[in-house]
């Protein structure tokens, strides 16, 4: 992995507010052209980390590099940022507002107008262009703010809880846009505490809890390393096998199926054969990967 493939690199970054340390010696690398999930519960230090990457606040110690350079205000123009705490000028028209924020990113002219129109069409808000922001619903405003983050075609897009409060249709809409950004070679940092969502779109993740990194790497690799022998099972009869301690270490019962964690040394093949031999009627037998949620819970409890 050469240096140029790293869009953002944090090295031993620390930031405190008075007594409280918000980010403690955080090191991470965001690879170019991938979707990077910055995950953790509320108050873990995600927003503080992002603010430092965007150059809104400076770290107390440690270094931050963007596109292989130490951060400077001019690098801000190559970043698009959708903060979690977001707002619009209530009385300004949507079109004027988008143009203003584009100017703040050093782009202006006819091209901006064209991009504004095409983005508004894409998020189905074209007819709102000349309305004031206060007339829009919360969800609509959120889509406008999303456009602000991508209008200047930045190389790095940072989205802090971009889907919170949106209905499923709009979540799908924005998710497609995010995936398209990745296809066009942009790097995306996606911060959320909703693990299910992160699991669906992230390539790489970094888990933080209580100001500290717990775990990072590619999502696939992390899952593989957490590879537990778990099976989702739906069947009738022969419950006796589930009590065999040499095969099964624990059983969780869900509504119409059970989740079986196999004992160390036992394989899924052995387990299935035993079940079939015992005359059970198996309608579902599926190896399951651990969810990000499970990994997170396990890691956090392990650390404490």
């Amino acid at each position: 992995m050469s240096e140029i493939d790293i869009t953002v690199r944090l090295d031993q970054v620390r930031k405190s507010f008075g007594e409280f340390t918000a980010v403690k010696d955080l090191s991470l690398a965001v690879r170019a052209g991938r979707i990077f999930g910055l995950l953790g519960p509320n108050g873990a230090g995600k927003t503080t980390t992002i603010r430092m990457i965007v150059n809104i606040t400076a770290p107390d110690s440690g270094t931050i590099e963007l596109f292989g350079q130490r951060i400077t205000p001019t690098l801000q123009d190559r970043i698009g940022y959708l903060p979690e705490e977001r707002g619009l000028y209530k009385k300004m028209k949507i079109g004027d507002q988008l143009r203003f924020f584009a100017e703040l990113k050093n782009i202006s002219g006819k091209e901006v107008d064209r991009r504004i129109d095409s983005w508004l069409a894409r998020v189905k808000l074209s007819e709102w262009k000349n309305k004031r922001a206060m007339e829009l619903s919360k969800g609509m405003q959120q889509k406008i703010q999303f456009i602000m983050a991508v209008l200047h075609e930045p190389d790095l897009v940072i989205l802090d809880e971009p889907f919170s409060g949106l209905d499923p249709v709009n979540v799908e809409l924005l998710k497609d846009v995010v995936l398209e950004l990745k296809r066009t070679g942009k790097t995306v940092i996606f911060s959320t505490h909703q693990m299910e969502l992160a699991e669906k779109i992230c390539d790489d993740i970094c888990l933080i809890n209580r100001s500290q990194k717990i775990l990072d790497g590619s999502l696939r690799q992390i899952k593989k390393s957490f590879g537990r022998n778990a099976v989702a099972l739906r069947m009738e009869g022969s419950n006796g096998i589930l009590n065999d301690a040499s095969l099964v270490s624990s059983v969780q019962t869900h509504s119409d199926e059970v989740e079986v964690l196999l004992a160390p040394g036992a394989t899924a093949q052995q387990f299935l054969r035993k079940l079939v031999d015992s005359g059970a009627n198996v309608s579902k037998f599926e190896m399951i990967e651990p969810s990000l949620h499970d990994i997170f819970i396990e890691k956090v409890t392990e650390a404490e």
Binding site: V54, N55, P83, L88, K90
Partner: peptide, 17 residues
């Protein structure tokens, strides 16, 4: 106050000093 209350400040500071 308007920019602080509406939280626009955060987006603004990400673009302008």
């Amino acid at each position: 106050i308007d920019e602080k209350e509406t939280r626009i400040a955060e987006i603004l500071f990400a673009s302008v000093r």
